[in-house]
Design a protein around this nucleic acid. Structure first.
Ligand SMILES: [Mn+2]
Ligand SMILES: [Mn+2]
Ligand SMILES: [Zn+2]
Ligand SMILES: [Zn+2]
Lengths: 125, 125
DNA sequence: ACATTATTGCGAATAAGTTGCAATAATACA
DNA sequence: TGTATTATTGCAACTTATTCGCAATAATGT
């Protein structure tokens, strides 16, 4: 399954690279200057996730959001779990540079963490 | 809006009280001995959440799960945020007695936390 | 140029959750 | 105990997010 370069892929990637916030399929479709099919956007995003280029956040609204989190790039990249913040006022989701720390009972093995804090962000308070 | 006692409410509440795991609407409907309408179950659960009797967890699958978390009852009850664990093997979600700790940037106010760790639980490993 | 096959668009399907509305029943109180 | 009030329920329809099948398109290696 070799990946190919396409305008669609480039457009979505650039949008995520330039965005300070995590984006939903919906937001991506709206912010794109070119028209890309809904299903295609999802497929592109899922591919990015599979390739560990992008990470997926599921928020309290049950929707998926996608982010590149450039800040994390230096170190453990996407694999470093961090908190996310969902502002109820401006309705955005962003990556916080706050690592998720926890301990689990014996015998539990953690593969992933999906942590979203909800409240009001700095801009809105 | 005074609450009333109904067989439906009792049944759902008992199920949650006796369950070691967080339950989805789906799971609740299946485990109930009496037939209760889907919409009604959601309404009962949403009422429980509003009354802080039950807390809602949104998992990576985008679905809502509901739990009473008896262990937390003593202290700060539902309001005390804790991690949840989703086992990919037995496909269940449980409350962990692990508090969620974090710090947020200046000006951010946190109202809620939805934190789910995913992996393999003790029973399955 | 050509063959291979990854990617796309479209429409339909799936699934979770909500909502309007009329019927039912729990509660308060006369 | 009877009655009025209104919270709760069931049903069907609706919304929204995400996926899937399939045929058409186009990126890539030779
Ligand atoms: Mn992030
Ligand atoms: Mn819990
Ligand atoms: Zn904000
Ligand atoms: Zn398990």
């Amino acid at each position: 399954m070799n990946r190919r370069n396409t305008p669609t892929k480039e457009a979505v990637l650039n949008l995520l690279l330039n965005s300070k916030k995590a984006l939903s399929q919906d937001a991506i479709e709206n912010q794109l200057d070119i028209k890309i099919n809904r299903a295609t956007i999802y497929r592109v995003l899922n591919r990015f996730c599979k390739d560990d280029l992008v990470h997926r956040i599921v928020a309290e609204d049950g929707k998926q959001y996608f982010a590149i989190c450039k800040k994390c790039e230096n170190q453990a990249a996407v694999l470093q779990h961090h908190f996310h913040f969902r502002c109820l006022s401006c309705d955005t989701i962003e990556c916080l540079q706050v690592p998720v720390t926890y301990s689990v009972p014996n015998g539990y093995r953690v593969q992933n963490a999906n942590c979203v804090l909800t409240g009001v962000c700095n801009d809105c308070s």
